[in-house]
Design a protein around this nucleic acid. Structure first.
Lengths: 222, 222
DNA sequence: AAATATATAGGGGTAAACCCCTAATTTATA
DNA sequence: TATAAATTAGGGGTTTACCCCTATATATTT
């Protein structure tokens, strides 16, 4: 399944970028399609090139001028939800990993790590959606899996905040009437919203809505 | 005695499977007869091929979608008692080892371990029935020897494999009729299964089933 | 051998979901 | 300010989900 993965490298150090690119060149199914020197550059570049070039994975340094890796990740997961961001850092720091994952990152790598593991990470992120290195303590991983909520402060997705409320209630197995009672609106209104949601996200039924909510982390999985 | 050992590799990562297979190819008395990507696949495959191919050892990853290594082990030690299952994981976690041994596993290996140790483990399991790595504290080993009763508690994943199939199709937004057509059974049968699933997992509707599937990782989230 | 679990399938009814449609008011944005 | 988007609500029809029930064959477990 992992055929032709388009990767972008974001790091302020040229040496790192080039080294990474070289190493990835040994893996023909991985294409480095762009290099950026900081968060701002990649955000702007994607804005202009999103229609032209498909980007699957971004290898993002954390410590960078102008806009650091965490900030850039927060911005990009909202505007380019299908791009998977893997953090890159010299520091094996738990708080760093934490923050990145909360920002919407899909994995965290150390620069000291071997190329195999980087390729692994890219492939695993493409296949499973996430990559968590062996080093990351298990408790952290479970923590992460359990609390993988990111309540979209902003308009994350294409859904409005009222629609998101309805989506969340649907995920709690509420019927339209129950949702109406909770939100003090009419059942017909809930149904109108629900139908809108379905056509927006191209869902066939409420299960589709629930799966969307999970995928876009609109709900907490206990 | 260890002549011609038939091995199955179960891991969701192709890289791991292929690497393992390659490494085992250097040992001509070990044959890799099948690769599966998750617990469900190996359970189903064995069901269909138990008469045709003899399987001696299964190298089973722990963290997998659909049905994880522990669940699969619990199922398989019941239905195929002569197959010896060696756990495989990236995590050197005592609780993981514990749970696997309680599920009926015969040994636990780290992916980081060298191929020699993996071959060792396979041979030792064939000869002695068990393999416990040097890392495992001695007390643990004695624990196992003393309490080497396989406590197959129950169906961990309270769902049967047919039910899991239906759950997965529900998560793909299929209607009962569509599921029936896919599984070559009647719509009424699918509905009976669905109702059973709902009462088992205490779901109110299909969204509840989808959320359960997510929580218990019966489905992959892309 | 008996009890239990699983997979199968059907009858029949109610409520909800689903899928069209229109349309008013409010809020945000160009 | 004009336009667009969001929120609200309703009419009406078809399909599906949901919730009872029974029942048989097979497989597994005790």
């Amino acid at each position: 399944m992992s055929s032709e993965i388009n990767v972008v490298i974001v790091d302020d150090q040229k040496l790192i970028r080039q080294g990474m690119r070289r190493m990835l060149e040994d893996h023909p199914h991985i294409q480095v399609v762009f290099e950026a020197t900081d968060g701002l550059e990649i955000v702007n570049w994607l804005q202009e090139n999103k229609e032209i070039i498909r980007v699957d994975v971004i290898l993002m340094d954390m410590q960078m001028p102008n806009m650091d890796g965490w900030e850039a990740t927060e911005v990009l997961v909202r505007s380019h939800e299908n791009i998977k961001i893997i953090g890159l850092s010299s520091y094996d720091n738990e708080a760093f990993v934490d923050r990145l994952m909360k920002s919407g990152g899909r994995g965290y790598l150390l620069k000291a790590q071997e190329i195999n593991e980087i390729v692994d990470a890219i492939e695993q992120v493409m296949d499973c959606g996430y990559y968590l290195s062996d080093r990351v303590p298990l408790t952290k991983i479970q923590d992460f899996i359990n609390n993988s909520i990111v309540v979209p402060s902003f308009n994350t997705s294409e859904l409005t905040s009222q629609e998101i409320k309805i989506v969340q209630l649907i995920c709690q197995e509420k019927t339209s009437q129950e949702i109406a009672d909770i939100l003090f609106i009419q059942r017909k209104t809930v149904e109108a919203h629900r139908d809108n949601i379905m056509s927006k996200i191209k869902a066939r039924n409420m299960v589709g809505i629930a799966m969307y909510a999970v995928k876009h982390r609109l709900v907490k999985i206990n």
